[in-house]
Nucleic acid binder design. Structure first.
Length: 259
DNA sequence: ATGGTAGACCTTCTA
């Protein structure tokens, strides 16, 4: 079973590109982030034609996440539990049905810049909430994949120019600490477990020729429960997609599980 | 030291 995560930076602005990738890569499950539309404007038919079931948590203009699966999605959770007042569409979770069900979440963790503002506090608060929720999910002792744009550069090796990110929320000690704490609950970083080669990135900024200069960072991650990690077959970053026509600034990350 | 790009949408915000 192949599970993908991809921050598409507007699903409607990029529908042709996104559909092309789905036809080529044919993931069984996909987590999308930054769809940038409300539920009614999500192009569900384009994915249903390819055989996917679709669940969406949308928002006008910003954020928005989706789950796509070849088999039915059950037990859907819209929004990250723990704060009823949070209106940002950054989390959707469901159980992918099948002979060996797997629980999957599509995560769009807050960017948090600039660090001197309430945006950074929101990021850290959101990470604390994700930590508590993940703790509950791990107690189920099921195959679980928490996939998405974490907006965290875990280590210096995950940036081409780590010194350039020192003042950025993505590389702040407190962001990295919260990401490590999440992993210490018992979650494995699929890329690090399967491959781990340095210099592998999932995001290149649109600005200042970041792609042409390979000024990338690894911020899209798949965190696996032990029951999923034990069945990890491989993990691939679809780097070439960044060079396609009208690309997202992120590329897909694909995890293969023996499920 | 600065500015560079992209998307949604109404003019500026987010990234």
């Amino acid at each position: 079973m192949r599970l993908a995560t991809w921050n598409v930076n507007s699903v409607n602005a990029r529908l042709e590109t996104v559909v092309r990738w789905f036809e080529e890569a044919a993931p069984d499950v996909a987590c999308l982030q930054e769809i940038k539309c409300v539920e009614e404007k999500f192009p569900a038919e384009a994915f249903e034609r390819l055989g996917y079931n679709v669940e969406v948590l949308g928002q006008k203009t910003y954020n928005g996440v989706a789950l796509l699966s070849k088999t039915p999605l059950e037990d859907v959770t819209r929004g990250l539990p723990g704060d009823e007042s949070d209106e940002q569409a950054r989390y959707i979770e469901a159980v992918v049905s099948g002979p060996r069900p797997v629980r999957v979440a599509s995560i769009y963790l807050p960017n948090g810049n600039p660090v001197t503002t309430e945006k950074f506090d929101y990021k850290l608060g959101w990470m604390a909430r994700l930590h508590r929720h993940a703790q509950g999910l791990l107690a189920l002792e099921e195959p679980l994949a928490l996939m998405g744009d974490y907006n965290v550069i875990p280590e210096p090796r995950d940036a081409e120019n780590p010194e350039k990110w020192l003042d950025d929320a993505l590389f702040q000690p407190r962001s990295r600490e919260a990401f490590r704490a999440l992993k210490w609950l018992g979650l494995s970083d699929a890329y690090m477990q399967a491959d781990g080669a340095p210099g592998a990135y999932t995001f290149w900024d649109y600005q200042a020729g970041a792609w042409q200069r390979n000024h990338g960072i690894r911020i899209d991650h798949a965190l696996l429960s032990p029951q999923a990690a034990d069945r990890l077959r491989g993990c691939e970053i679809h780097r070439d997609v960044r060079g396609w026509e009208k690309p997202s600034d992120h590329v897909p990350l694909v995890v293969e599980l023996d499920l």
